[in-house]
């Protein structure tokens, strides 16, 4: 009961942060839950969301409509709580998200080279969010590394883990190399002004 209250409090704090994201993000969360936990898991997540006062039905989510980003973050937090997911599971959730995403399919035309993908990344961000921004903070082809910066995103630290997996997958789609690593080197939740990820291969 105490944990549930804590999740409810977190939800209330999250909804105070302004910003919307496309329904596709919540839909891909639902697909991952369904993949890992089946339909029962999906129902359990919906039930928990309703319990904490933020009911949602995954199949009714419209991919291109705007929803509060808080809702998307809450789905991750709820999944972590009810399924006992670890950081690795959340990272896997982020890693899987581009696999199902309609938006990723729409912007796949930018994925024919890493350079083009990086160039188009601000546009890619705008497809997903109506707040914040993304920028390439550094690209060293010789050293085989890219630094991606996210500005003005401050919902919850769980998303840092999610993004780690997410960016790794995007890199896996545009770099012909399977030994890709992604780490968060700066975090707005750890006193930095922005989030920064280093992708190396």
């Amino acid at each position: 009961m105490e944990e549930q209250l804590s999740l409810k409090q977190t939800a209330e704090e999250l909804t105070r942060v302004k910003g919307n994201s496309r329904g596709e993000i919540i839909r891909t969360h639902g697909l991952f839950i369904s993949y890992k936990k089946g339909e029962e898991g999906l129902t359990a997540a919906e039930k928990k969301m309703a319990e904490i006062g933020y009911p949602l039905v995954f199949k009714d989510i419209k991919p291109l409509d705007w929803y509060p980003e808080a809702l998307s973050v809450l789905v991750i937090l709820v999944s972590r709580e009810i399924f006992g997911w670890t950081e690795a599971d959340v990272e896997e959730m982020g890693n899987n998200a581009p696999k199902y995403s309609l938006i990723v399919k729409m912007v796949m035309k930018y994925f024919f080279s890493l350079e083009r993908c990086l160039k188009e990344s601000p546009k890619y961000w705008d497809y997903h969010y109506d707040f914040g921004s993304i920028e390439v903070a550094g690209f060293d082809k010789k050293a085989q590394q890219v630094f991606i910066r996210i500005n003005d995103y401050k919902f919850h630290p769980i998303v840092c883990v999610f993004y780690r997996g997410y960016f790794k997958r995007i890199a896996q789609l545009v770099i012909s190399n399977q030994g890709i690593a992604c780490e968060e080197v700066k975090s707005a939740f750890k006193g930095d002004v922005y989030h920064e990820y280093r992708i190396s291969w």
């Binding site: 697909l31 991952f32 993949y35 899987n96 696999k99 199902y100 399919k105 796949m108 994925f111 024919f112 080279s113 896996q172 789609l173 545009v174 770099i175 012909s176």
Partner: peptide, 21 residues
Amino acid sequence: PFDIIVDANNAFQKISEYSLA
């Protein structure tokens, strides 16, 4: 362009026995 699978239909998932994920 790097020969990585980005999408597959149900029939492909059935014959390969791998899910889309």
